[in-house]
Simulated assay, not measured.
Amino acid sequence: MDDQSFERIFKENFTVLTNIAYSVVKDSDVAKDVVQQVFLKMWRNREGLNVQSSLKNYLHRSVINTSLNHLEKEKRLTEMSEGHTNNLAFAKNDVEQQVVRNEVEMKVKEAVSALPIRCQTVFSLSRFEGLSNKEIADHMDISIKTVENQMGKALKSLRESLKSVLNDRFISVIITIISLMN
């Protein structure tokens, strides 16, 4: 195939092929690029090009395939981009959550440290060690009622201590979270 015959084939088919590509990709600039890619590939492979059917059918099929390949590539790029964006958002959220978690953990530990020794011990055995009221009573050699009273005092004191930092609804949730972390 020489330059003149290639140019003639290009001019005769460009508009029709662009319309075919447009029907697939729905973007006129992309459709023109697709047709140019097909002709560029055809020119580069002109020495070994072996068209089994008509040239018209070959060009139509090439444009359709190249258009579909373009859509698939765009889809993959979009998915990768969205995945990257989502990963960045998750990472940012993870960092923010960790900072908040660390601050809350520090405030809770300070509040627990400020409790009277007996309240602190009962609270720590209950929330951090996971002992039942009976186990705490046996361990400390006190009555179950005393354990319940000390836990009540500890929770009331913690609610007051943490009120400025946290909403009342979340204090018990935070205390539970802290107990799971240790």
Rank of each mutant, 00 (worst) to 15 (best):
S126H: 15
E96L: 15
Q97Y: 02
T121K: 10
M106K: 14
K92P: 01
R127T: 09
N93C: 01
D94Y: 15
V100R: 12
N102W: 02
K109C: 02
Q97K: 12
E110T: 04
Q97I: 07
K109Q: 12
V104W: 01
Q98K: 11
R127N: 14
E96F: 07
E96T: 06
R118H: 10
E103R: 10
A114S: 15
V108W: 03
N93S: 15
K134A: 15
I136N: 06
P116W: 02
L115I: 11
F128R: 10
E129I: 00
L115H: 13
E129T: 02
F128D: 13
S113L: 06
N93G: 15
Q120Y: 01
S124E: 11
C119A: 13
N102I: 12
R118Y: 05
F123Q: 04
R118V: 03
E135L: 02
A114M: 08
N133H: 09
E135H: 05
R101E: 13
L131W: 00
I136K: 04
E103H: 09
G130Y: 00
V95G: 02
K92A: 14
A111Q: 05
K109E: 14
T121L: 04
E96Q: 11
Q98G: 05
E110F: 00
K92H: 13
T121Y: 04
N93I: 06
E105H: 05
V99C: 03
G130H: 13
N93H: 12
F123P: 00
V99R: 01
N133Y: 10
S124D: 07
P116R: 04
I117E: 15
I117N: 05
N93T: 13
D94T: 13
I117L: 07
G130R: 08
V112F: 03
V122Y: 03
Q98A: 12
E110R: 03
V100H: 03
K92L: 11
A111L: 04
T121D: 06
A114I: 05
E105I: 07
P116C: 03
S126I: 00
R127W: 04
R127A: 11
N133S: 12
V99W: 02
V100F: 08
E105R: 10
V100C: 09
I136W: 01
V95D: 11
N93V: 02
E103S: 04
R127E: 14
E110L: 09
F128M: 12
C119L: 07
T121M: 07
K92N: 08
S126Q: 07
V112K: 10
V108D: 05
S126N: 14
L131D: 07
S124M: 04
S124A: 07
L125A: 05
N102G: 08
N102H: 10
L115D: 11
S126K: 12
N93M: 05
M106Q: 14
S124T: 13
D94Q: 15
V112Q: 09
L115S: 08
S113H: 13
K107A: 15
I136G: 03
T121R: 07
D94M: 09
K92D: 10
N133K: 08
